[in-house]
Computed example of a mutant assay.
Amino acid sequence: MNNLIPFDQGRIRKIWHHEQWYFSVIDIVAVLTEQPDYQISRKYWNKLAERLKKEGSEVVTNCHRLKLVAQDGKMRETDAANTETLLRLIQSVPSPKAEPLKLWLARMGTERIAEIQDPSQGIDRARALWQKHGRSEKWIQQRMMGQETRNKLTDYWKDHGVAEGDEYAILTNIIHQEWTDLSVQDHKTLKGLSKPHNLRDHMNEAELILTALAELSTRQIADSMQARGLRQNKIPAQKGGRIAKNARRELESKTGKSVITDENFLAPLNKANKIS
């Protein structure tokens, strides 16, 4: 069952909060109990939290309610904790995964500090991970260029009154729906992806390029309009997505092939990485 909840494929949700990583407590519990069912892991955590409270443990009180991507793709509040709190929590759950998880948490903290001091390290590690999973250099270049375009768009939103979390997700979905004729969630479903998977990590070259075109167009249109807030930014999101849609339709008419496909980079179940 290890391969169902690998550490290194984004199955443990995390967020940078108050200058440190906070991790989903339920995801940590899922790893410790080797339980892929989210609802069962949630119930386990609820019972464990009750016991810890009765014992006077500070683990529960040190958890924060933070917004992370939920199973339905929306940002929802869930219990999250920093490394120090999680190390205490791990001691409360007998599990053969305890020691590997402790090492993983320690490594995450060290890597983040290194990235802050030298941002290129994060880029290098992402490239190495994609290479490890068999991505071509051409694909990696497109993925990284697309991420840079995405970052510039979210920087614009941040500077112009769009709230991180739900509002980013709303605008992203408008752009995506406009150019693909699919919501982000429907696109993930088409590709057979589950909640923790990053859709962009499973896009083909054309999907990556057109996503970048849609987001580049959105930012430039928003900038020309000086759009502020969620309501005003919905307009450039639709227009930017439409530009990429027109490009998609033109390409499809010339090639006779659909740009949007069900292809993904998921490893066969028997080859999936296991926790070591």
Score class of each variant (00 low, 15 high):
D118R: 12
Y22L: 04
D223T: 12
I243P: 01
N173G: 06
Q131K: 14
A222K: 02
T172H: 14
K257I: 06
I28A: 02
G109E: 12
L266R: 08
I12M: 02
A106Q: 11
T149E: 15
S41V: 01
A49G: 05
Q141A: 15
A272I: 08
H18E: 13
K97I: 06
L32P: 00
V25R: 00
E50W: 10
T211P: 12
I26E: 01
R13P: 04
R65A: 12
H176N: 11
M108P: 10
K234P: 03
D166W: 12
K47R: 14
L193C: 06
Q121L: 05
I5N: 03
P196W: 00
L210Y: 01
Q131W: 06
G10N: 04
Q185F: 13
D181N: 13
R219H: 09
E50K: 10
S183Y: 04
D201Q: 05
L251T: 11
R65P: 01
R242I: 10
E215M: 11
Q121N: 13
L129S: 14
M145L: 14
E137W: 00
A237G: 03
L208K: 00
Y44S: 14
I12W: 04
G161Y: 14
M1P: 15
I26D: 00
I235W: 02
K53R: 14
A81I: 07
T189S: 10
A237F: 08
I170D: 13
N246C: 15
I123V: 15
A81G: 01
E207Q: 11
G192L: 07
K43T: 09
K43C: 09
Q131M: 10
D72W: 15
G192C: 02
A81W: 10
K158N: 15
Q9V: 13
A128P: 15
F265W: 07
L213T: 05
K239P: 00
Q91M: 07
G256N: 02
L199W: 05
E99F: 05
